[in-house]
Simulated assay, not measured.
Amino acid sequence: MNLPPLFVLAPEAGIFVLRSNDAHSAPHRQWGTAILFGLEGAVTVRHASGSARGRIVVVPGDVPHVTSSRGPLASVVLDADHHRATFRALARRLPFALESSSALAQMVAVVARGKGAVARGAEQAVAGLLPTGSAPVGDGRIARLLDMLEGEEEHPLPVHAARLKLSTGHVSTLFHARVGIPLRRWLLWRRLLRSLPLMRAGGLAETAAASGFSDQAHLTRTCVRFAGYTPRQLANALASHG
């Protein structure tokens, strides 16, 4: 199976699908659950406490790791904000292998098509393996903050904290406790997601500026930190998908 790179975005569903050949990622920790499918052979995920190896490997959110595969690999990432139930179900777990011949066969068929409902097919394959779907954040103040940040991220944190009648320190502590990630890292993740559709047209410096990064280097560092690949690698995969 020698297929061109493929990167499919479905941000409205909080799902992203990346197909690569002979994959070797940089160390990274995505904000969401990653399900890795070895399309022809095993996938190996190395982390601080050991490794997991199999045709299907699940990487819980925010776990630093490196991925390698000698053959083609399909990665399905479920954004933690859209799939909070999945993130919570796997909290404090390390990467682990799963066996499901039906899910693997479905994923092989989905990515081989290369076009069409790739994200939907990937979501169906994953649904048979893990609990999926949204869940309330559990604190009305943080839920309100998330709504404010979606529409007015450019406002400094003290402005949002004042609206909530809380100190900035209290907001940061609450956010980390309820969402599961420090607020600053969450903001970087959201900016990265916002940048992904813009990469299709090229112009990474323009993409960085439009997404809220200080410059192209900042975008590149953030992309590698969260995704394990450079913006150029992802842009090429997006272009292959058309």
Results as ranks from 00 to 15, higher is better:
P60C: 10
Q30T: 12
G14V: 12
P60A: 12
A23H: 11
D81T: 14
A80Y: 03
V63Q: 03
R46W: 01
S68P: 04
S51V: 06
R19T: 11
A52W: 00
H65G: 07
A23C: 12
R53C: 02
G32H: 05
G61Y: 01
L9P: 08
V76W: 01
G54H: 02
E40C: 09
L39Y: 00
P64W: 07
A52R: 00
I56V: 15
D62A: 14
G54V: 09
R19F: 01
L18A: 14
L18F: 10
L18R: 14
G32S: 08
V8N: 10
A74T: 10
A74M: 08
A10H: 10
R84E: 07
H83I: 14
P60N: 09
A52V: 09
G54D: 05
R88N: 12
R88S: 11
A48W: 01
P11S: 14
S49M: 04
V8E: 12
A13M: 13
V63L: 06
E40G: 11
G14N: 09
V77C: 08
F37D: 00
N21W: 02
R55K: 09
V45C: 03
D22S: 13
V8M: 09
V77K: 03
V8C: 13
W31K: 08
H28Y: 06
I56P: 02
S68A: 14
P60Y: 06
F37N: 00
A89C: 09
L73K: 02
A52H: 02
G50P: 09
A85T: 13
S49I: 04
A34C: 08
A42K: 03
Q30V: 13
T67K: 00
V8L: 11
A13W: 10
D62G: 08
A85F: 01
R19G: 03
R84F: 04
L18W: 04
I15T: 12
N21M: 09
A10V: 06
T44L: 03
I35F: 01
R46Q: 07
H28F: 04
L78A: 12
G50F: 04
S68T: 15
I35C: 03
D81L: 15
H65F: 03
N21Y: 03
A80H: 04
P11I: 13
F87C: 07
P27D: 13
A89Q: 07
A48D: 13
L78F: 04
A74F: 05
A34F: 00
A48S: 13
V77D: 04
A74H: 05
H47R: 02
P27Q: 12
A42M: 05
L36K: 03
S25E: 10
G32C: 09
R46F: 00
R70W: 03
A26W: 08
